[in-house]
Simulated assay, not measured.
Amino acid sequence: MPRPDPRSSHALAGGPGDPLVDTHGRVHRDLRISLTDRCSLRCTYCMPEQGNEWLARSSILSTDEIVRIATVAAADGITTFRLTGGEPLLRTDIGDVVRRLAAITAPDGRPVDIAMTTNGIRLRELLPELTDAGLRRLNISIDTLRRARFHELTRRDRLDDVLDGIAAAAASALRPLKLNAVAMRDVNDDELVDLVEFAVAHDAQMRFIEQMPLDAGHTWDRARMVTQDEILGTLSARWSLTPVPGRGGAPAARWLLDGGPHTVGVIASVTAPFCGDCDRLRLTADGQLRNCLFSTTEYDLLPILRRAGSGDGEEEIDRMLRSCVHGKLPGHAINDPSFLQPARGMNAIGG
């Protein structure tokens, strides 16, 4: 996969402390940080059950390295750090990661926002530590409420652990609480209403995600994807749906359920791309910057971080961030015949 040299980029916008603005005028405020490519589940749309090639442990960013990158990013206007994986709660130092990131402040002195996407399996156990450390928001993945189906989808019998994690999150002060489900034809598309009702009962927002070509086995089939229109059509038979304005850079479009206050969201990356308002960058667990979930280009920070005796590392991290932003395309081109699926699966990219 190509790894550009930031020194070869021309006309990078700004310097240390300036906003991260791409050539299409998008200001970047969100950095998704993958903490590991490993996961406690084996979801069929994400990775094979066996034979996975994990990142070398020596290549995984340390907490010090993550904080170093995040500190530069915050100075450049990044206000939200979302911790992802794989499964971020598998990281043994997860509490320390959250605590140290939460201590970072923006140039105006305000604290950054720390969020996390998790499968919820270790959440009940770790939630008190995470909230004390400064975690503010949670997204929890739950594709089905049926035990046999959960086992078939994830190849693990852990539904009770996920439900316990959701219950713990619902009892906490973390809001908004969001539940994520990938909508799949003839798999869980008969549970869309059930999942929304479950979310409402837990004071959470259900968000359905169109299945994307991000599986490690490259077996994605557009015909298996349930579209946004289909999702809304199913839900509108149960609720009156009213669009919520002011989406901004958020990946999910939202609708009020029967006038509110509860909402449902849809992330329609395939049929209704929102690339024009995208404000996100991604950092993989092994130190690669990505400017799009579907990018085939990465920007390698590891040599900068691990070069002995470097006195200008922070400026180089800044230049790499700007090079990554500068190289961002207008959109992901999923619907273009020339589209190439990323070599990495979702677990290795980080959600």
Rank of each mutant, 00 (worst) to 15 (best):
D300K: 05
T242I: 09
Y299V: 09
T36L: 05
P107C: 00
G311E: 13
A181H: 07
W54Q: 10
S8Y: 14
S141T: 07
F198N: 12
L293H: 07
V187I: 14
E298T: 15
T296E: 02
T284M: 03
I317F: 01
A204V: 03
A168E: 11
V112E: 04
A250L: 05
L241T: 09
M346A: 08
T36W: 08
D30K: 07
G259V: 09
I114C: 09
F81C: 00
Q288W: 14
L329C: 09
S269A: 15
A13N: 07
E298I: 10
G17K: 05
P48S: 02
H326R: 05
T234L: 12
L126Y: 13
L130C: 05
E191H: 08
R136M: 11
T297I: 13
I60K: 07
I304F: 10
R147N: 11
W54T: 10
G350Y: 13
T227Y: 06
E49R: 15
R254G: 03
E230F: 03
D64F: 11
L301K: 06
E210Y: 00
Y45W: 04
E87P: 10
T79R: 13
S8W: 12
T44A: 11
R344H: 13
V112Q: 04
L153M: 08
V21K: 01
D164P: 09
R282S: 10
A333Y: 12
L214F: 04
H326N: 06
P243C: 04
R7A: 13
L55I: 01
D22M: 03
L41I: 07
I104D: 06
G350N: 13
D64R: 14
T219D: 15
H332P: 09
L283D: 05
